[in-house]
Amino acid sequence: MDSSEVILGAEYTVRTLALQPDDEGEVTATLLSRKATVPAGRAVLYVHGFVDYFFQGHLADEWIKAGYDFYALDLRKYGRSLLPHQTPNYIESLQSYDEELDEAARIIKDEDGHDVLVVLGHSTGGLVTSLWAHRRRFDGIVDALVLNSPWFDLNKPFFQRTVGTAVVERLANYQPRRQVGVLGQRYGQSLHVTTGGAWDFNLAWKPLEGFPVLAGWLRAIRRGHAELAKGLDIRCPVLVCASTASAAETAPLETISSADIVLDVRHIADRSTRLGRLVTLARPTAASTTWRSRPNRRGAGFSRKSSAGLAHMCRKVLTARRTNLGRTDRCTTQVRKRRRSPEGDRRRRPRCLRPARRLCL
């Protein structure tokens, strides 16, 4: 039996996507799917984060209950897509992921016949899907974007975010696979059943100590952060979910289950306004991996985000892409129409100066 069936169950279909080879050789991605009981024209595509892959069956359960067919993508060199000859999780440009994201979206919409596609990105997957949705904003592929604790900036002191980034940029030109960092074990230990966590997952694909942080990979991430900081123009509705507080990695387990020990939630809140024209920010009291909070917290997280946030998003999906959303004041729901020039063209402010519509749930 395939390892994905051991953890997830036989109701999932696993499909391998053949991609263009890179300097290490063969490259694949993996698309998992699970259909709702009642056929629907709506689907959600989940994209994981760094040192991760899809194993959260309870997440699929909630979307199935909401009437969506569920899909999850293990990106190249992650999880089920990691091949023996590959450097785990390594990439030198986040745009390379467009290939498997485009193919997954084509399968969901063209082959499987879905009219609405909601893309759900977690952590690094939130950064990757945001940039992809921006590049595909005129193609009508993504109908709504949900970001769970998206990684929008480096959770390090100012010196490391600036001077450190410049050093990594130069180093990656000559030694892209040079190790420049490591992940702590605390986060992984807080998740896995063998170390006091609540989840079971493949430790070969998601080791507790993580995989080495390499210069070429970190450069790609920092370039993605810089592009987002300049401002994106995502045209579909966006729901951003972030905890109300961050905590140190050495914090007690009780704190870890209710705070983000991986990311700075202030970065998430600030950068959310730079995603597009209609952005909703939800701040439940839950950990970075809100979908993976401990069972007593997980139910509250789903109630807050899947019921309130998802309902809000779905109402907007059917109308937002056909409506002139206009410019809005920050953190308000009042919509003001854009003024038009005598020639009828919109007077567009620079993207970085156009505030997003941000609704706090």
Rank of each mutant, 00 (worst) to 15 (best):
N202Q: 12
K305D: 11
R266V: 09
H48G: 03
G344Q: 09
Q175G: 00
T289S: 15
G276H: 08
F159T: 11
P39R: 11
D102Y: 08
L127N: 10
N173Q: 15
N173S: 07
R346M: 10
V279M: 10
P207F: 03
L101P: 06
E343P: 00
L59V: 14
V6H: 03
A269R: 14
G125F: 06
R186M: 07
A66C: 03
G210F: 00
R298E: 10
A36V: 00
A248G: 09
L171F: 02
V279C: 12
G125T: 11
R340I: 13
E111F: 05
E103T: 13
K65G: 10
D98Y: 12
V128I: 15
A229Q: 10
L353K: 06
L45V: 01
S293K: 07
I221E: 04
K65Q: 11
W217R: 04
D74R: 00
R277M: 09
K230Q: 13
A144R: 13
R315C: 12
H58F: 06
T323D: 11
R34F: 04
C241I: 15
T124M: 15
K305F: 10
P84M: 06
T319V: 15
A220E: 01
H192I: 12
H267Q: 13
G224F: 00
Y71E: 00
V38A: 09
S272V: 06
V44E: 02
A105M: 09
A40M: 02
V47G: 03
R315S: 12
E254G: 05
E11R: 02
L232E: 05
C236A: 05
P176M: 01
C352R: 15
R336S: 09
A104Y: 01
P295D: 12
